[in-house]
Nucleic acid binder design. Structure first.
Lengths: 199, 199, 199, 199
DNA sequence: GATGAATGAGCCTTCATTCAT
DNA sequence: GATGAATGAAGGCTCATTCAT
């Protein structure tokens, strides 16, 4: 089936040019197939775009959206989720580039083009906010609006991922995750937790 | 001169719809002038877009890009710059909305549509990186890649500004700046500075 | 305004080629204008087609659809309506050709492409059926299903009009109407009325 | 052989949607065969359409186009032909629906899509005109252009057939033929023949 | 022989841009 | 200077048709 091939090629083209500037013809050319063949698999440009997001976001949300284990330290739970988020995007670089180009959901949820993105963002925001609230409750995090903190953490992760791409994708996901963890703790935890965790 | 009128109207339309989805016709209608008149002032859609950025970025860079006073505490200098950045965007909400919609330069410098943006980002990155490096040098900031820290700080500011818009633009720039300052110090300074500054 | 020019040109092209085989490009070329100009006046092929029908049918129905004068002989009333119908189409030959090509509503009302046509046919059928029923009631017409008789009369008129076109459009509307009247009386009236009217 | 199956299925689809709106794919689906198989039997959409008409029209013309028996009353000969025409179409309802949708040859001979139709119409017109002329010659029919009378009679038959379909195809061909015969005599015969034949 | 898979060519529609008035 | 009117140049999408298996 062409489906997977098309999705991968389309990710590359969308990542390079953005949704609007991408011509369906270009995607077909990138796949090495004809326009009509592509339209045989996806019903149109929008559906193709949606399909990419659905494909990737279902996987990402599947990995990430389980309820947090109450026995695990809530701070570690969040950091673990961030690790999954980062690892996933490092496995799907072209999707990451699409994400970085158009996906600043934290800035304007309304700007998301397809329902799959909007739903995933809504779900992620819900889960993230709850997790941050739990940390605040437990005294593990500074007192502030948990939704705002979560959005900030997403932006910080995106910066790290963007820097990873700019730097030639050389670092391993473990290295990136480690750095991210330190920045995270510093940004969101009270002094004694910072001291304890970053010792 | 129509110039200022067109720029303001165009900001609104671009902010609402994004560059690609905005039709020049719509901008003219928003201005209450004819298409041909608009083309008499700006040579095309791209030039209009550039002109907006030039107009705003020249002002912003003018306010922000003086060399830092060596007598002033380098940390305070950065925070002052952030204050200016935030204040400026709170005075130009439509431009801010354009900025948030398309301007995640920290993520992908290559995605910037117009040279004005690219230059301003390059200059800002240069200044910011130097300032962060000075702070690190002075032991006021944690040791890390100053460019990465700067990009992170930009993203954090953008999140704050986005939240300010989402929240109905109720807070004053002072309130936003205060909160931003605390988040900044926490995220980027070593423990003893945090203790000192957030006392 | 191009509206009238386009409608006339489009009638010609649609009459020659039929709706499906007509390319909007052809209509524009027939008008001597560009495609985009045509689209500035009509929003699309369907709307253009509808507009033609609306334009013509509003006029035709305006001429034809008044209530019948109860003082006038009901048979004469119907014949008068037929005269108007024929005269109208002889004034609008290209519309007549479209009508003959696609407008066999009497055969399959469901096949009408645009609402304007469907409504006009529904209204015409209603009026015609009522008028025929009145004639039957008055003993001026043979006893049969008035709707069927009406549909037959429409088909007969269309044959006359088609023959008029095939014959080079030489006859006057009076001549055509006269012949039509004789055929009408013969086909639908009982013997004594035929004798009386065709004396 | 798929030939007959395809023709029957295609008739149904063409009757429902019309030539232009029918996709070859839909015909294949209706047959339950693949597109390529269909193209193995017919060389294209046009040829398929032609084949349907050829198939049906050869049969119809075979039944109808013998020379008239000079010993039989010429009026009865025509009525007998009409009976055959009606009976044939009542046996092939989908073909009848195609015929009613696109086949108003009496209106515009030029609009016939395929040569089979055009030839059959030309032959039918020739035969019909000759037969009507013979009736006129014999004083059995009113004096008028025999071709026009023939075209009118075809239209009248089509109206009856359309009404038969609309009415749920309940009447037998004998019933329809009877009614048609009465309408025919009334429309085309002089008073004394009407009196004699409709007694 | 039957088919799934593939495509070339074309049509409708949009929009940035120009120019005569 | 301002504009209404006009258009060239694309882009999304469809469908009749073919061909390797």
């Amino acid at each position: 089936m062409y489906r997977a091939l098309i999705i991968e090629s389309a990710e590359r083209v969308f990542a390079d040019a953005g949704f609007e500037a991408t011509r369906v013809q270009d995607v077909a050319a990138e796949c090495g197939i004809s326009l009509a063949t592509l339209y045989g698999v996806f019903r149109g440009k929008n559906e193709l775009y949606s399909a990419i997001h659905k494909e990737r976001l279902v996987e990402l949300m599947g990995r990430i959206s389980h309820e947090l284990d109450p026995d695990v330290d809530p701070l570690d739970s969040i950091i673990e989720r961030d690790r999954i988020y980062v690892e996933f995007h490092m496995e799907h670089v072209d999707y990451l580039r699409m994400h970085l180009r158009e996906g600043n959901a934290w800035a304007a949820g309304a700007s998301l083009r397809v329902p799959e993105q909007a739903q995933a963002w809504a779900r992620g925001l819900e889960l993230g906010t709850a997790a941050f609230a739990a940390c605040i409750e437990a005294g593990l995090m500074i007192e502030d609006d948990p939704a705002l903190l979560f959005r900030t953490s997403v932006a910080m992760n995106q910066v790290r991922l963007a820097a990873w791409i700019d730097g030639g994708q050389r670092e391993s996901s473990d290295e990136v995750t480690q750095r991210m963890r330190r920045a995270f703790v510093r940004a969101f935890c009270p002094a004694h937790i910072v001291a304890e965790r970053l010792a």
